[in-house]
Design a protein around this nucleic acid. Structure first.
Lengths: 218, 218
DNA sequence: ATAAAAATTTAGGTATACCAAAATATTTGA
DNA sequence: TCAAATATTTTGGTATACCTAAATTTTTAT
């Protein structure tokens, strides 16, 4: 069975609003995620259900079947591997990779996927710290926390960011915060929950509570 | 102006049946090249003409405009760079690259194109010996000849193959002939123009006139 | 010159994937 | 419970890119 680029994008969207939680995924949410009219989503979900890639009914909305999940994870795997390639070998910054990876993730070639994996050294995390599913679809789990949940004084390491938009990533660059940097929360402001953070044992920067929630540490 | 994947494939096809010669390019030829019904070609050529990517009239058929030529050459450049990447870094053989490169050539990102070029060391020829157009669209020229035009005794070097189908490339592999190998024509059979060829100063193989025409040497 | 052959176009359809607007369900709050 | 709000689906369109079969044009050979 062939899955079109559009179908792959739906599966990915359904995955991303589902995982790891269970529960109802509405058309509207999918529509929003894809920037598409909800009326169009109805049609496509019906088609995906016919293809047995999702289960679709009023009660529970859209839910990936085993096969649909496999397909979605494969696309995500490809996306994250390509992002890794772009950053590690082609001098892309972490805020530049998304758009190109959105294209590259749809290239169909199992040999390409395997060889790329080997070329990159079978990485487990992408440049944003997101886990790269392995060949069998297993997703490395991270037991990380929001920076905003960390008590003062503890030395933590940045392992992931929860917002891959270019604007947020550029903001982090400007604050001098990158993946794998060590952070220590020095002070927490009571009135707005903003943080004073020591970065790599050197600089100190202020981060809003919103920003801190998007920085995941371990 | 955006050019769709399909449109890019038409431009590429027009280029490939045109270059370097001038002259009429019929719908039928394009249709054949793309595996498409001639009736469909008419529509698309009209659309490309509206977009000023080709000139289209009964007298001269389809002809790329300056802009159309530029677009076609860019796609070919991308195709050949990706082929080079696949062979040199991802362990693809020269008969495996085509299908994947057909997909990769449509990825849109100028940064990707530039960085890939640098990564590969700005190569001038792809794994089949085909010239890779440079950033300005200039195509390195080869003054090579068919092996079938070479007189006996002259030591030549394989610089290109004129048939990139997997079956021909595998045939060459089986004969132990690769790009850059030295060849000497030992004998030419009068009755069928087949050749006895010495490869790399060691083995001798028989090649049909058809095969020899597809092996370009210098 | 003209009939047969070949190439091209027209006409009428198909599939995919989208849209807006209206209709219908469903959920939620008073 | 029932009306308002929200979510979903239906209806009737659009654009792209393809198809077959039937015209029409153009070319070629006699």
């Amino acid at each position: 069975m062939t899955i079109s680029v559009t179908e792959e994008n739906y599966l990915k969207a359904i995955f991303s609003v589902t995982y790891p939680a269970e529960g109802r995924v509405g058309n509207q949410l999918i529509a929003e995620k894809l920037g598409i009219n909800p009326a169009s989503v109805t049609e496509m979900l019906r088609k995906l259900a016919e293809k047995k890639l999702i289960e679709y009914n009023r009660a529970s909305g859209a839910k990936l079947t085993k096969e649909g999940l496999k397909a979605a994870i494969k696309v995500i795997r490809k996306h994250r591997l390509w992002e890794t390639f772009l950053v590690e070998h082609l001098n892309f910054t972490w805020d530049e990779v998304h758009e190109v990876a959105e294209q590259l993730e749809h290239i169909q070639s199992d040999k390409l996927l395997d060889e790329l994996t080997t070329f990159l050294g079978n990485p487990s995390f992408d440049p944003h710290g997101d886990p790269i599913p392995d060949k069998n679809g297993r997703i490395p789990n991270q037991k990380c926390k929001n920076l905003s949940e960390i008590e003062t004084g503890k030395k933590m390491k940045v392992v992931k960011v929860a917002d891959n938009t270019a604007s947020f990533l550029k903001y982090l660059d400007k604050q001098g915060i990158a993946l794998a940097d060590s952070l220590i929360v020095k002070e927490i402001q009571d009135f707005d929950k903003s943080l004073l953070v020591e970065v790599k044992g050197k600089r100190e920067v202020y981060l809003s509570a919103e920003a801190a929630k998007k920085i995941l540490v371990e």
